[in-house]
Design a protein around this nucleic acid. Structure first.
Lengths: 240, 240
DNA sequence: TGACTTATATGCGCCTCAAAAATAAGTAAA
DNA sequence: TTTACTTATTTTTGAGGCGCATATAAGTCA
């Protein structure tokens, strides 16, 4: 913290106070592709563009509490895994005035996506189209009709970073399970991984890796209503 | 960003403005152990405790620019790799008033450590003692005499996170090279890795791994002034 | 010159893991 | 009832990475 000599005795109000807000990337996997929940802006600047749900941080509110408040008020979600992503503070990122934003990444299971869309009809579920083969380039943000969706402020940069973070953590953390229902087949788990990575995986190898990690346990029950051999349902057990 | 409806038309000053500052973890490896450069606080709160160098973010200053300014003003350093670490915003983290801090991690080669200590004699080089064997526990911060050094605010938490981040990136990024002089032996590189990890590595395997990665090239020159066979000097070539 | 120290190169066995092939369990159609 | 079809699951095989041990090289110092 801080300029020690100065902080000690002088008037706190002599220093700049900035607006601080939180923006939440509500991310999930739907129809085999990563997606994010956005709001369409009505007023300038960036009227008509899509933006991440967000809100100002209160004077007596912790950053994480602000993120949870936005999650609750804008999407009706209470128990969602939410981690800090990055803090964006370019001077001109908002043309009106200086705003520093702390971006958070929330991971949504399919049921949570639908619940949020129902809780707030203003939300739209945008698809993040990963460029085929090349996963370094920026991902295109598409609206439900498949049209390119322009984003407000630096929110496209934030979305890109969110997807990169998710991709990076996929192999050595349990993030994949937050994007699935409590019971799932290995095929569903693989689909989620492939959607985030943007590339295919070898099936037997994926299966063995997942089982050997010890994070999942078979439930003994099987899929129903398939027109082929039903797959075993697994459940996330937790990391050691 | 932001509560769209509200942001659009109302008075910006109706919302909380917070003090925002940057704190820099100046990290390096010295005498086979990770270390960080700290300042001793003179005034309350936490008088006599050590603290990270930091400063307030100006109203028209980007976060990264603020970090570079602190790096320059407090340690005389100009060309240092510096990445954002995490943003801390607990309400009571500073007992005087609400301050949100964006923590940054700067990686220092041995020469940069010495240069900083000379540029600002107030700086002290604290050793981060990784608990033997168990790298999950918090690392103790020791002053040059080996005594435990109490830290101000939540700065111990920030230091611990910095070391964890460094450890996590060690294997798949080039962070190790930022902690070494431009020319180095494989033994020096291994010492840095072992210091960050807090555990020993197998020598031939480490050597093979590093060479196979293709990140380093032999320079053809050798160590001098050794009392044994001199080692080849390598140099970082960059990642592909 | 020979002892000593550390760097460097090589060989071996184990474990991980990707890819392919083989087998199992359902549905749908003949 | 049988056969074709689809997808799940298991087994096999081979390549590569890595830890460990050993052998050799290149300096200093007594």
């Amino acid at each position: 913290m801080a300029d020690i000599d100065i902080l000690a005795g002088e008037d706190p109000d002599a220093y700049a106070r900035l607006s601080v807000c939180v923006d939440i990337v509500l991310m999930g996997v739907r129809k085999g592709a990563p997606c994010a929940l956005l709001l369409r802006r009505g007023a300038a600047p960036f009227a008509g563009h899509a933006a991440l749900p967000g809100g100002f941080v209160g004077a007596r509110e912790a950053l994480e509490d602000a993120a949870r408040r936005v999650l609750r008020d804008k999407a009706g979600l209470l128990d969602v895994r939410c981690e800090q992503l990055y803090t964006f503070g370019e001077v001109a990122r908002d043309p009106r005035r200086r705003i520093v934003t702390v971006a958070w990444l929330a991971l949504l299971a399919p049921a949570a996506i639908e619940a949020a869309l129902e809780a707030n009809p203003e939300l739209l579920c945008a698809t993040l189209a990963v460029p085929e083969g090349d996963c370094s380039g920026d991902s295109a943000v598409l609206d439900p009709t498949g049209a390119r969706l322009p984003l407000a402020f630096d929110h496209e940069q934030i979305l890109t970073l969110a997807l990169e973070r998710l991709r990076g953590k996929l192999d050595y953390t349990a993030v994949g399970f937050d994007l699935l229902p409590p019971f799932f087949t290995l095929r569903q788990l693989q689909d989620v991984h492939e959607a985030i990575r943007g590339s295919a995986l070898n099936k037997p190898a994926f299966r063995r890796r997942m089982i050997d990690k010890g994070w999942i346990t078979p439930t003994g029950t099987r899929e129903t209503r398939t027109s082929h051999r039903p797959a075993e349902l697994y459940r996330f057990r937790g990391m050691t």
